[in-house]
Design a protein around this nucleic acid. Structure first.
Lengths: 346, 346
DNA sequence: TGCAAGAATGAATGCGCATTCATATGCGAG
DNA sequence: CTCGCATATGAATGCGCATTCATTCTTGCA
């Protein structure tokens, strides 16, 4: 089977593997289609001898059952739709990984799409996903278009919204309060004696709520000044460096606490500060968000708000599974909280 | 639609949205099922008045076509299977992002699975994917179990293998030579006057080939010593720091060039070196691999082998699409190469 | 005015499987 | 023996749609 050139797969397969059906396996094994179906879904109902002949036929032909047909008639696709803003952000991919692992262990596959941040794109993606008749859907965040809500409700499947909580989820939600996270950061800033603060964020909706909560609480407690840089770009180390340059250039911000919407931005801010010879945390205190792996290992280690992304994905999967299989979950709103991890950067 | 408690979606949908069919839409619009099908797939074949009534009915009922049934009969699922070792690694997720974007633009959805590094897991994932009858498959790497190869060939669909090249791909491959990459790094190390080198890697199969090529070429050109740390863990900043600690502790390696299997590890090595007061690149030169976003922005900026991950995903998508739609691609083996980017760390 | 050639629609069919209902066989209890 | 029940199997059916073939209704043009 060496040296396979162009078109080999196409040529070889045209009417072999893809065309084998349970009926064909049955013919080979001297049984009917039903028996083949049973051999695969519940072998205990088939005699050992028949089972053996069926498996031989399967082996021989390379038969792969057609899950489309199976799902069509059984109304169970064993497919879970998942929508995230971006898979390149470790924040979401780590969560999806945990979610997917759990689901796969229970025999489900994940249909994953990126939606970006525009609600219309999400709506379109939801339609496409529902057309595959998933057994459940996972969405990121609690902000969706009215039509998206309506269609999801009409689909009659369990839906989990992740990364945030609300009193009125579509069905289930698993996350934490971003308002509370902003308040916690502001309290930390005030408690550690800062009277100037800067907010650096990459503009997603949840980050905005954290920063708004931070700004209000910080002003209220300290009466101090809060400045803000909205990057309108995906978070990255380079953007973090840029943010500090802009803070210094545009606001003369060289002393105080900087609350970043992600650890990556915080890392960039720290890097830029060190390059400029600013002392951390004495002059500039830096807080990140997310507690990603590197947060504990950069120098100085990042003070950050820690969110358990694995737990997020895991709990979401569990909640959906119990809905799918049991029909009801015990709780609809699961607040996983967050914690403030103090290290060296603030 | 506020305050939706448990089970709302399930209750609401049980026999609404999910149960609507083209036949039902047809009844509402006063036409047959075929006409509804045509209205959606080729509106030019339906009169404007009928079209309007159909769309009203769709709007009213929240109808979402059942792609399972459509795929079953048309033998086109508009689904692309994609297998990557891990989605949390930016290396793969950035590639999948580009791949998926391209595919989505052409009306395909991505069924994504993580396979880890074990061939049996990949084989199982391939079977599961093929059961959904994808129109094409994307795999990572060129090492697959014999059975996986056989089943993929039998499936009769285009298959692209990514991140590597070989003379005998299953169908198509898009990547670059890891051996050549290792040689380029070794030549750089030799050219810049190093006579000691260390290799730090996280153990994936392609990284091993790079390091083996490096070691052989480096010894051959310099006669120098090459030591090695195999982390057997996912690459991370913390693992990079650990690697340097071990290099120093186990081998007394405090001078020379360190070639890491990823930028993340290189960043960790650099961080640890700085913490220990080792000068970079004078004492310790550090090379990464991948040229990820942060590589240019850390201090000192990383010298690394740059691979265009977006191009990888994009070209793979293009190659598959032309196979799916045109039947033949012009080339089966696409070498995208790599480039050595010299910055400050080496 | 008549007829061929679209334009718009529908009836029938089957994709490959899970599910339901029916049938055949074996076997122990009465 | 005969009845009853478990075990092993098959025939029939239909999921929701795309596709094919046939039918009706318009048109344009000779």
């Amino acid at each position: 089977m060496a040296k396979l050139g162009k078109g080999t797969a196409l040529a070889a397969g045209g009417d072999r593997g893809g065309r084998v059906t349970m009926a064909a396996i049955g013919r080979l094994a001297g049984v009917s289609q039903v028996t083949v179906s049973r051999a695969l879904s519940d072998p205990s109902k088939v005699s050992t001898d028949t089972l053996r002949r069926i498996h031989e036929a399967i082996e021989q032909t390379g038969f792969v059952p057609n899950a489309l047909a199976g799902a069509l008639v059984s109304r169970k696709s064993r497919l879970i739709g998942a929508l995230v803003p971006s898979i390149t952000s470790i924040v979401y991919s780590a969560m999806v990984q945990a979610f997917g692992e759990r689901m796969r262990a229970r025999g489900y596959q994940i249909l994953l799409s990126e939606t970006g941040t525009a609600l219309e794109d999400e709506e379109r993606a939801i339609m496409l996903h529902l057309s595959r008749r998933p057994d459940a859907m996972m969405l990121t965040g609690i902000h969706h278009s009215p039509k998206a809500r309506k269609i999801l409700l009409g689909a009659g499947i369990p839906v989990v919204e992740l990364w945030d909580i609300t009193e009125s989820p579509i069905d289930l939600c698993v996350g934490f309060s971003h308002g509370a996270a902003g308040l916690a950061a502001a309290d930390f800033a005030a408690d550690t004696g800062h009277d100037r603060a800067a907010l650096v964020h990459a503009g997603d909706e949840r980050a905005l709520r954290r920063k708004d909560a931070f700004a209000e609480r910080f002003r209220q407690r300290t009466g101090g000044n809060v400045v803000e840089i909205n990057l309108n770009a995906p978070a990255s180390l380079g953007q973090g460096r840029l943010a500090l340059s802009r803070l210094i250039g545009e606001f003369g911000f060289e002393k105080g606490l900087i609350f970043c919407s992600s650890d990556l931005l915080a890392h960039g801010v720290v890097t830029e500060a060190q390059t400029r010879g600013l002392r951390i945390p004495q002059q500039l205190a830096v807080m990140g968000f997310g507690d990603q792996e590197f947060a504990a290992h950069v120098e100085p280690a990042l003070t950050t708000l820690s969110v358990d992304r694995e737990a997020l994905g895991w709990r979401a999967a569990e909640a959906l599974l119990s809905r799918i299989e049991g029909g009801q979950a015990d709780r609809s709103i699961i607040d996983l909280g967050f914690s403030l991890v103090r290290r060296k950067s603030a």
